[in-house]
Amino acid sequence: MTKNSISEQTENQAFQIAKATQKPNQTKEQTKLIAKGIEKGITEYKKRQKAKARDLDKKRKKLDAKQESLALNENEHHDIALSKKQRTMQASDTGSPHYYTSFAYIMLMITLAWIIFHMITVH
């Protein structure tokens, strides 16, 4: 089938429509001419619908690509936020109350040991 040829299905549809709308005393040749006009109309309609479908498909693909890139960016931002949070947590591990409590306890023990040592050595 070439670019300009009309499908058999379209020809049959056009001829059926032309026959259904046929007026009394209308010749076969007039009916054939009407059918040809209807064929052209159907063909033009199909071309326009295909063009619209192509345009919509292009737009859909662009939107899909945009959504995918946005999702990737969102995942990257989420990963960055997680890594910042992890770094913050690691940095705050040294500043946790448990760390300070342990440090204070050790300092207290050292101080007590120093006091006891001096008490023993003075007497």
Rank of each mutant, 00 (worst) to 15 (best):
K62G: 14
I17M: 02
T31P: 04
L70Y: 07
L33T: 10
P97R: 14
R87W: 10
K23A: 13
K50W: 06
T88V: 10
S102I: 04
R60Q: 12
M109L: 08
Q90L: 15
L72P: 07
Q22V: 07
F117P: 04
M1H: 13
F103C: 09
T88C: 15
K61I: 11
A14D: 00
Q67M: 05
Q22F: 11
A18W: 00
S69T: 09
L112P: 04
E68I: 08
A53L: 07
T31L: 03
K47F: 05
W114I: 07
E29G: 04
Y105M: 10
T21K: 12
T121R: 14
A35T: 00
S102W: 02
N73I: 02
A91S: 06
Q22G: 15
K19A: 08
T43Q: 03
K62E: 13
S102N: 12
E44R: 05
H98C: 15
I115T: 00
N25D: 04
A104Q: 14
T31I: 00
N73K: 09
I17S: 06
T101L: 15
T43G: 03
E44L: 03
Q30D: 06
E44T: 09
T2S: 09
K59H: 13
K62N: 13
V122A: 15
S7M: 00
M119D: 03
S96Q: 12
S69Q: 14
I6F: 10
L70S: 12
A20T: 10
L112I: 02
A91E: 15
K84H: 14
